[in-house]
């Protein structure tokens, strides 16, 4: 049994009177790739933002490598966030910086790494996502797929313990999705611990060792991708997975069986 990297217990988040999710618990183990799916507005993005403390949960606890990061006396939030990589749906590269500088800035300004060392490390990370030849380009000069790969490199450069992906391909034109998924598959093979919100069911079935189906602020069902696709506990799970698999132009789960 591999050890837990990121653990959440009874997380609850409300905005005003609006309960986004209640009592969510989950555990991400070393080398896991967990895919979260669920309808729009279920609180998937909010959950990821709570996990790396970008948004404060109302209650519940979070542990990173066994240390409770929701405990204000334990460590600084900024330090915790360095160890949790995050990739956003709309890339969010720093627009005024080249690809290389986007990857470097966390190293030089947050990790206080000497410039030359940071540059070497940034080039390595860009190589990892296949974009060294675009190092000098600004985000506005890159395609969406390239921007997202730079964003992944930027997160990887911090050497996070776990990577959170929030619908990393849903803002991309269909022909650019593949290059980003390929990078993510490579990461999974290398043993990166990942928590991925995505509707790419092909990716989920191929790479994920666990899937979570979230609806209306709750985890309705979780298990291996095969469990959820082939033997779901709830009809609702089957309906939803079938629907998005179809929407995304993949084969319906039934046919895959």
């Amino acid at each position: 049994m591999s050890q837990p990297v990121l653990v959440a217990q009874n997380l609850t988040k409300t905005y005003g009177n609006n309960v986004i999710f209640r009592n969510i618990s989950l555990s991400v183990n070393e080398r896991d790739t967990i895919v979260i799916v669920g309808p729009s507005g279920t609180g998937k993005s909010t959950l990821l933002r709570c996990l790396n403390l970008l948004t404060k949960a109302d209650s519940g606890k979070i542990w990173l490598d066994g240390v409770e990061i929701t405990d204000p006396t334990c460590c600084s939030e900024d330090e915790c966030r360095q160890r949790i990589g995050m990739v956003f749906q709309n890339f969010l590269l720093f627009n005024h910086l080249t690809a290389l500088d986007n990857v470097m800035i966390g190293l030089t300004k947050v990790k206080k790494m000497p410039k030359e060392q940071a540059r070497r490390k940034a080039v390595e990370e860009l190589e990892r996502v296949g974009l060294v030849d675009r190092a000098g380009h600004y985000p506005g000069q890159l395609s969406g797929g390239q921007q997202q790969r730079v964003a992944i490199a930027r997160a990887l450069a911090m050497e996070p313990r776990v990577m959170l992906f929030d619908e990393p391909t849903s803002a991309l034109d269909p022909e650019l999705i593949g290059e980003v998924l390929a990078v993510m598959k490579q990461l999974a093979r290398e043993g990166m611990t990942m928590l991925v919100v995505t509707h790419e069911m092909g990716f989920a079935r191929e790479v994920a060792n666990r899937m979570i189906f979230m609806e209306k602020g709750q985890i309705l069902e979780e298990g291996t991708p095969d469990d959820l696709f082939e033997r779901p506990k709830y009809e609702r799970t089957r309906q939803f997975l079938w629907k998005i698999a179809e929407l995304h132009g993949r084969k319906a789960p039934e046919e895959n069986g």
Partner: peptide, 11 residues
């Protein structure tokens, strides 16, 4: 969003 992205890498 730019602030969020900066915070996400630990700034």
């Amino acid at each position: 969003d730019q602030m969020m992205a900066a915070r996400a890498i630990g700034m």
